[in-house]
C-alpha cells in the first residue's frame, strides 16, 4: 500500500487510505448553483457509489472530478477536491483541466466510441499521452480489452470500426479505452443505463474485478447495483450530500430518514 496516501482514522467515515477528499465543493452552471458544500472521501482502490433522485447533481459532481465542466463557458467551482498522493486541488483554476483528465478517466452514460477502428479507440488514450511504440501499445490494448472482458469478442476484428459493436460491447470498449492508460481513478456515469440485463451483469462483474486495483466512483440509479459493487455509498439530494458511509451501513442502518426513504423507494 502506498505510504503517501493518508489514513485519517479520526474521521468516522474514513476507514482506509483515501485517494481524494472532496471538501466543501460547490458548483455553479453560470448563475445556477447545482452543488452545495459537498464533502466526502473517495477511498483508495475501492468503489464509491453516488446515488440519489434524478436531478440531485450526481452527474454534476462526477463531471467536476475530471473537470468536464471546463469545456463549457460560464461554469464555476468553489471549494476543494484534494487528490492524493499529489495533494493538489484538482478543481482549482490554477490546475490545468488536461492534467486532471490525464490522471482521472471517465466513462459516460451513453457509449461514445470514436468513429474509428476498435484498436484505435483503445489506443487513443495511449497516443494522446505520447505512447506510440507499437509493441507497448499492442500489449496495453490487449490488456485493457481483457480487463474490460471484451478481448475474446473482438480480438479477430480489431481493425474494424467500433460502430459495428453492440451497445453493451461499445460500453465495455469505452471502459477499456479509459483503462488503457492506467488511470489513478475511474469515473462512471450510469454506465449500464443504456444496456440490457446481460450486458449490465457483465459490466457489474467487471467493476467487481477492477475494484481491488482501481479507485472507482460510479453513479447509479440502481440500488442493487450500488449494493453489489460498491464499498462506500454517498446519497445526494438537491445538490447536497445527505449521507456518506459504508455501503452496508447505508443500506441497512442509514442515519438520515431521507436516505432511508430513498433506498426503500418511498421517493425519488
Amino acid at each position: 500500500m502506498d505510504a503517501s496516501i493518508p489514513t485519517k482514522p479520526a474521521d468516522a467515515h474514513i476507514d482506509g487510505p483515501v485517494r481524494a477528499h472532496v471538501v466543501n465543493l460547490s458548483f455553479y452552471y453560470g448563475e445556477k448553483q447545482a452543488l452545495f458544500d459537498v464533502s466526502f472521501p473517495i477511498h483508495d482502490r475501492k468503489a464509491t457509489a453516488l446515488i440519489g433522485p434524478s436531478g440531485c447533481g450526481k452527474s454534476t459532481l462526477l463531471r467536476a472530478l475530471n473537470r468536464m465542466h471546463d469545456l463549457y463557458p460560464g461554469n464555476r467551482y468553489e471549494g476543494e477536491v484534494i487528490l492524493y498522493p499529489e495533494q493538489i486541488n484538482i478543481v482549482s483554476p490554477e490546475v490545468d483541466p488536461m492534467l486532471v483528465r490525464l490522471k482521472i478517466g471517465m466513462v459516460f452514460q451513453k457509449p461514445n466510441p470514436f468513429p474509428k477502428p476498435i484498436y484505435d479507440n483503445v489506443a487513443a488514450g495511449l497516443w494522446v499521452r505520447g505512447i506510440r511504440k507499437k509493441s507497448i501499445v499492442d500489449e496495453r490494448v490487449e490488456q485493457a480489452l481483457k480487463q474490460a472482458a471484451l478481448w475474446d469478442e473482438v480480438k479477430d476484428r480489431l481493425r474494424t470500426s467500433a460502430y459495428g459493436l453492440s451497445g453493451g460491447q461499445q460500453q465495455r470498449l469505452c471502459i477499456a479505452r479509459a483503462l488503457a492508460p492506467d488511470p489513478e481513478m475511474l469515473l462512471l456515469d450510469e454506465p449500464t443505463s443504456a444496456l440490457d440485463p446481460i450486458a449490465t451483469a457483465r459490466i457489474e462483474e467487471l467493476m467487481a474485478e477492477l475494484a481491488p486495483s482501481v479507485t472507482i466512483v460510479i453513479v447509479t440509479h440502481n440500488m442493487q447495483q450500488a449494493a453489489r459493487i460498491s464499498s462506500y455509498t454517498a446519497f445526494m439530494h438537491i445538490g447536497c450530500m445527505v449521507e456518506f458511509d459504508k455501503t452496508t451501513t447505508i443500506f441497512t442502518t442509514p442515519k438520515e430518514s431521507r436516505t432511508q426513504d430513498y433506498i426503500t423507494g418511498r421517493f425519488g
Binding site: L71, R101, M106, A124, V128, R129, R177
Partner: peptide, 13 residues
C-alpha cells in the same frame, strides 16, 4: 458533444 467529451475526457489537448 459525446465525441468531443470522449476526446477531452481522455486527456487530449
Amino acid at each position: 458533444l459525446e465525441t468531443r467529451e470522449a476526446a477531452f475526457g481522455l486527456g487530449a489537448d
